[in-house]
Design a binder for these strands. Structure first.
Lengths: 146, 146
DNA sequence: ATTACTGCAAAGCATTTGCAGACTG
DNA sequence: CAGTCTGCAAATGCTTTGCAGTAAT
């Protein structure tokens, strides 16, 4: 109560017990500059000197997603799911096919787009968009994909 | 040479040996009205009275993709990869969150879109777009997602 | 004290790989 | 015949699940 500095509370999903593993997952997500996979998160936690069980990380992430604190994304050419704090406004990404860097996009081509479906009507709830190509650095370095 | 009607040749990827399993996979894709997973393809083949090994189907699909005859896609909320004949022009889909139906879109919001990236420049090679929501039928039936 | 959470092990799935025999060109 | 396929089994990698002990409220 006196010594240990509590982790930032601002992003804490309400209604969840505050436990060590959860605080560590949240800290990693808070300091990440791009979406991370469950195993990357686990490794970061271990690098910080704590043990981390991948199954626990998955359970925590799933819970955070359910609470709306975290967003889960899948980008093409990547089998693994990635997670990021929901603080970002962005919902779309550019993915470098060379270095796999994921860059958030701030504009959205779908703002006033009505899909033209082959088959009947459709009640649109949302959309996913990814742009892929080479990031600035990779474009200069000779585009060594694969 | 006289009795057995050969499978349609129009879609046959050039340079590939014509074997039973490959013809069957292609036939299933030809008669499919939407993208199928490897295991769905395998089941269709078995329903047709032939045996089908999932690993062989994967190998064949991978080969067809490499030859450009087939396209592999991943839609959100679906872990499995889906495959379709490349005959379609469409590259984008609307996915019904209720019945999982996949509906091709013929227009594209990205035709003249330049992504606004947070971080530097980007050489765009292509993009993926999915719209999700309820298809006409599910919208009427009360939107029973989950 | 309850109920929720986590360490840990093991199961599940989709997909891939290895290998020897079978088949295509 | 030579090289390519395929049946089949087993491995792989991500993710989920089960269970019993531990911790949060």
């Amino acid at each position: 109560m006196e010594g240990a500095l509590m982790a930032e509370e601002k992003n804490w999903p309400e209604g969840l017990k505050r436990t060590g593993p959860r605080e560590r997952v949240l800290e990693v997500l808070e300091s990440a500059d791009q979406p991370l996979s469950a195993s990357q998160i686990s490794k970061h936690i271990e690098d910080g000197g704590n043990s981390s069980w991948i199954s626990t990380v998955y359970r925590i992430l799933e819970l955070f997603v359910k609470k709306g604190a975290v967003t889960k994304i899948n980008v093409m050419g990547n089998e693994v799911a990635l997670y990021e704090l929901n603080r970002f406004r962005h919902k779309h990404y550019a993915v470098c096919v060379s270095c796999k860097k994921i860059i958030p996009m701030s504009n959205c081509p779908m703002e006033k787009f009505m899909p033209d479906l082959e088959d009947g009507e459709f009640h649109v709830l949302g959309h996913n968009i990814e742009v892929y190509g080479y990031c600035g650095a990779c474009a200069k370095q000779g585009k060594s994909e694969d």
